[in-house]
Simulated scan of single mutants.
Amino acid sequence: MTTTITWDDSIRSFLRQAGSSNPTPGGGSVAALIAALGASMTSMVGNLTQGEKFADIQSTISEVIEKMRRLTAECEELLQADIASFNGYMDALKLPKSSDEEKRIRTNALHEAAIQAIDVPLRLMQVCREGLVFTHRIAESSNKNVISDLGIGAILFEAAAQSALLTIEINLASLKDAERKQHYSDTLTSLMSEIQDLKNKSLQVTRNRILK
């Protein structure tokens, strides 16, 4: 069954669907929502860093707010793409396999579906890295009164990335292409290291400013 979820659905509706016996929305969609919430926290801090006191950083703040808007829209697309990729994999599993030709077609379809199921959460991890780059950029200069919210944004971006990583890992296990699998593994190691470093730096600044 195809599940359609939009940003206009209520939080209650999403939670009910995510907690039901239906396989979608699943972890990948939840991760996309978490990333969007991280973007909303960073955006809120930007929108509260306004006025004469912050005049010298307004161009940076405006850039960050716009970036969060774009990342939020991309998270919505990735939420839907995660559902579509799961449905695609299930459709591939249902393909006939009576003849050698049918088996070949089914094997190829499963391979392509597995790649799609990896590429969608991988893109979400890249979104999280982008979000953290901009979150960290305003950590030292944004409104101190809401600096804890910026730290929460950083935590949510990293949590979404970790969640997306698990989604990738379970699909990576079924990938038969050893060379492609190694390429993905190398990319993920580097990407996750960068994400964790940015989150840690953002949190360190957050806590330092809270204590001042």
Rank of each mutant, 00 (worst) to 15 (best):
T24N: 05
L95F: 09
I11G: 06
L37K: 04
L71V: 01
E179K: 11
I57V: 12
S85G: 15
A32W: 04
E63V: 08
M41R: 05
V127T: 02
F134M: 09
R137D: 01
S62D: 05
A139E: 10
A114G: 14
D186N: 14
G27L: 05
S141A: 14
I147M: 06
R104A: 12
I65K: 10
S43Y: 08
I105S: 01
F54R: 00
K94G: 09
A109D: 09
T187Y: 07
I170D: 06
K144G: 09
G28L: 02
N108A: 11
G19F: 13
F86I: 09
S142L: 02
G51T: 13
L198T: 03
A39E: 00
I170F: 10
W7S: 01
L48C: 00
A39D: 01
L211M: 14
M68A: 00
L191F: 07
N145W: 13
L124K: 00
A55L: 12
K97H: 03
S98Q: 15
S13R: 13
T42K: 06
L95A: 04
N145M: 15
L124D: 02
N143V: 11
C128V: 01
T6E: 11
G38V: 03
D56S: 12
I34E: 05
H183E: 15
A159V: 14
V205F: 09
Q50P: 00
I138K: 01
E52G: 01
E194I: 04
D197C: 08
C128Y: 02
A114D: 08
A36L: 04
K181E: 04
S62M: 07
P25W: 00
L156V: 02
S190L: 15
T60K: 04
